[in-house]
Design a protein around this nucleic acid. Structure first.
Lengths: 152, 152
DNA sequence: TATTGTTATACTCTATAACTATA
DNA sequence: TATAGTTATAGAGTATAACAATA
């Protein structure tokens, strides 16, 4: 099956590249994901920060940036935004006065819960073509890819 | 297994989202892919165009842009670059004088063959953790995701 | 009227480098 | 010396809108 069913174009050189197919699949999912985030007034990037701090309260900005694989300079405006929304707060770190410890406010916890439910709902509406085994297997393989990269 | 093995951070809210894991996996692969392209003096975006025109000679710029899901305005500079490299050429279309038909030069065909081999090599070096069945299954699932999105 | 290629423009995302205050 | 947060800035990638030539 070297030919795309819909427009008669031969994608074979790309369709056999996992890198390319990951990109296309990610673009497809990103639309769903971004739409779910937008519905709650947020962006995919900010969702990642909320999700990390939700489960790991007290991390520094740099720790979060490194967990998400983005530069720490990108955190400043992002945390500013989240503080403006009153869902996150910077607290002066006790032992190291250079850094902040990040925490969700009560509002932020409720917000993240609701956001997370919205994202899960939208994704599972979209995932009718995957059964539970497929889903689990896919997540496992994707995690293996991510971990493999870390070891270069 | 809700915790990342390497840095002690709890990723569970993200690690169960296919959208997020696709993004991380894609980032991991993108590095490999971009590096292979760079080795041949090209970018991932240009690889996509070469791969489509290689298998579908004579397409218009708009047809290629739509095959790759990018705006047609982005094609202009890209095709300019490929013509500069003497790997692709615009030929005036016979029946529609508004459009160009795109073709690889002989040099472009050889270039794309070599490029494709380099990409395949780099990817398979990286894919030691996937057996052939895994690989095929993954490609099939990713294709299903892409196709599902087209039907909204 | 609609479409092709084109241009100008803007926007998002991200990385880099330099600064400050702390360590 | 090194690190945390910050700022300014620049680059890549992509989208939007408008225009001329052609359909």
């Amino acid at each position: 099956m070297n030919t795309d069913a819909h427009n008669g174009i031969d994608y074979s050189m790309l369709q056999s590249r996992i890198g390319y197919m990951l990109r296309r699949a990610q673009m497809a999912y990103f639309d769903i994901f971004a739409e779910a985030c937008a519905k709650e007034g947020i962006t995919p990037g900010l969702f990642g920060i909320l999700a990390i701090v939700y489960r790991n309260p007290g991390l520094t900005q740099t720790a979060v940036s490194s967990a998400l694989d983005v530069d720490r300079s990108a955190m400043v405006a992002a945390i500013d935004k989240l503080e403006e929304m009153e869902v996150m707060e910077r607290r002066k770190s006790q032992n190291d006065r250079r850094s902040y410890a990040l925490y969700l406010t009560d509002k932020g916890k409720a917000f993240t819960d609701r956001l997370n439910r919205t994202v899960i709902e939208r994704e599972s509406d979209f995932e009718h073509f995957l059964n539970e085994d497929d889903r689990e297997w896919l997540l496992k393989i994707l995690d293996r890819i991510v971990q493999a990269k870390k070891g270069n």
